[in-house]
């Protein structure tokens, strides 16, 4: 296994959960998570050699993920690769949905997030991933101050929603 493959595997194994969580927060239709996840993997693989370490791997991966989610077009599947082994099939989606339903809190949180506008969904997802305001600002291309102001409003909205439940 060469260096590129080794770095790739270590990055993906570290960030896999985070990528999937970001997708779940943003997508109305969860069956697209598989497609987006594969697009992110492809972009990471292709971009790895050009990665200049100007930002951390984390910021780089988050940028790729949020941009891929934003640009995702379900009608365009040109770079489709074969389904992954041990697939993310509809039965496993159901299984996953079932587990989510068991976690009532998580369901409520997802509902609260899904009521937010697109930008706010990304912002809160990055915040819940414990990124600092600076890191979120770097992913989105806005100032940390702007992130802070916006996040305070989002937190307030979520709090109100959760209190209603």
């Amino acid at each position: 296994m060469d260096d590129k493959q080794e770095i790739y595997l270590s990055i993906i194994n570290e960030y896999r959960d985070k990528i999937i969580r970001l997708c779940f927060a943003h997508l109305d239709n969860r069956s697209y998570v598989d497609d987006i996840f594969q697009e992110v993997l492809l972009a990471v693989w292709s971009g790895l050699e050009r990665f200049k370490h100007e930002a951390s791997y984390g910021t780089w991966i988050y940028r790729i993920t949020v941009n891929t989610i934003f640009l995702f077009n379900k009608n365009e599947r040109k770079r489709r690769i074969e389904p992954l082994s041990g697939n993310f099939t509809s039965s496993s989606i159901n299984e996953f949905e079932h587990k989510i339903q068991e976690e009532e809190n998580l369901k409520i949180l997802y509902e609260a997030i899904s009521n937010l506008v697109e930008l706010d969904r990304i912002l809160i997802a990055l915040y819940l991933e414990k990124l600092s305001y600076e890191e979120i600002g770097s992913v989105l291309g806005i100032s940390a101050n702007h992130v802070g102001v916006r996040l305070n409003r989002i937190k307030e909205k979520i709090r109100k929603q959760l209190n209603k439940q």
């Binding site: 493959q5 595997l9 896999r16 992954l84 993310f88 996953f96 998580l106 991933e129």
Partner: peptide, 29 residues
């Protein structure tokens, strides 16, 4: 508390996440 709930996806669901094997994708890519 919300952060903990959020982060539980992926740790609790690790079985599901194992299905996303990056290793299997390299030859395909």
């Amino acid at each position: 508390q919300l952060i903990d709930i959020w982060q539980s996806v992926g740790t609790d669901q690790r079985n599901m996440d194992k299905k996303y094997k990056a290793e299997d994708l390299i030859p395909q890519i």
